[in-house]
């Protein structure tokens, strides 16, 4: 089936098999390999992208289902001159990533939640992150990065 859509403001049209996952469409058909594929059954959150502004798992969507939609992927977060978005900068500043595999998905979920003003406290950030698996860092740096991007005060230092 023919799929016509916009990704990061650019128009694409491709003829694809009906069964093709959106995650594979982005990576293999469009060459946008910033979207990572972890579990392919909706558990790890690494493949999260924005479809018409809503963060969804691209491994749980067929490409043919989003015909006509406007998508945003991690490649679309930085400015055209390469300047990182405030959220991306906060991840760099607060060591919010180590191997970086889970990072694109987290950035896309957090981008939607930031835009909607839903991250009012650390509990909201924790709940957002419950849908994303990170196996390197633990979540402290990730939470601090998002908290900084929201404008929450830094966490109090814990006595060791």
């Amino acid at each position: 089936m023919r799929v016509t859509l916009h990704v990061n403001g650019r128009a694409y049209a491709r003829d694809v098999e009906d069964r093709l996952l959106l995650s594979d469409f982005l990576r293999h058909e469009l060459g946008l390999r910033g979207t990572h594929v972890g579990c392919e059954h909706g558990v790890c959150g690494a493949c999260t992208v924005l479809v018409d502004g809503a963060a969804v798992r691209s491994c749980l969507v067929l490409a043919v289902q989003v015909d006509g939609a406007a998508l945003r992927t991690v490649e679309g977060l930085a400015a055209t001159d390469g300047a990182l978005s405030p959220l991306q900068s906060a991840f760099r500043e607060h060591h919010g990533l180590q191997c970086g595999f889970c990072t694109p998905g987290i950035l896309m979920s957090a981008t939607e939640a930031l835009d909607r003003g839903e991250l009012t406290d650390r509990q909201a950030i924790n709940e957002l992150l419950s849908g994303h698996l990170c196996r390197c860092t633990g979540y402290v740096g990730i939470v601090e990065a998002i908290a900084a991007a929201v404008g929450l005060p830094p966490a109090e230092e814990q006595a060791l």
Partner: peptide, 12 residues
Amino acid sequence: LPHVGHTTTRNR
């Protein structure tokens, strides 16, 4: 509703 999956699955 907050117990139904995650925000990313409830979005769709």
